[in-house]
Amino acid sequence: MRTARARPNILGGILGWVWLGVIVLPIYYIVLTSLREQSSFYTENPLLPPAAPTLDSYITVLTSGFPLYFFNSVVVTVASVAVILVICVMASYYIVRSRSKNAQRTFSVILLGLAIPLQATIIPVYYMITRLSLYDSLLALILPSIAFAVPITVLILVNFMRDIPGELFESMRVDGGGDWRMLWSLVVPLARPAIVTVAIYDALNVWNGFLFPLVLTQSANTRVLPLSLWTFQGEFQINIPAVLAAVTLSALPIVVLYVVGRRQLISGLTAGFGK
């Protein structure tokens, strides 16, 4: 729409490049500092490339338990997202295809979760997790992460599945296909873009989650990445390059995901709110 414009938008252009600076400068600083020697951190200009770039900070971080925290994050994220996808695809299929009143009720109840700041329920969740003897286990993170992702995931999937033509279901039903077959050979293939989208979106949220790990775990064995950044900050104190190396490493998988699947990631972020 803007291409029709006769004059170039100078004001917009200036704002655009200024904002780029605001966004990129902190990221540039993080990466640059992580490559600095600890000793030169206090002497060199923070925005100029280090005179002697080094990966020492990364080695410090990688030998300080980081691989375990990384592994924990992977376990929690993969397990949560796998379960989220299975149960939400099933529930969405039910909501879209069932003609009973319960389908609409189910949908309304689940959508209620979007209007409530769910983390306000953290105290009862903590109570339940301790009573179930799950405190300080990875399962303690996985279970509530699944539950909290249900509303937005179902919303996105339902919005998408409604566009699958009813005739496809009809013809498969005529062929004698049951629910499971419909789900597996019709819904899943056709809803694939939406499934990829919610998978990325939910993975991002679980990966970056902080409140559950903070409240529901305590030992190093169950530490996940965002919480490890917090503890690294306590352990390394003045070793800022090491802290920022940990920050960089923790964001790396998401950056890779971003480069590979930017379109899906972005459509994932807007999907629940646009259409």
Partner: peptide, 27 residues
């Protein structure tokens, strides 16, 4: 759009509802 049948059973939604109830509604 689907003519006959009553569509899928509520059982399909039970796992999602169970998780949501256990860690969101009950809390």
């Amino acid at each position: 759009p689907n003519g006959g049948g009553h569509g899928p059973s509520l059982l399909m939604a039970v796992p999602a509802l169970a998780f949501f109830a256990a860690f969101a509604i009950i809390p």
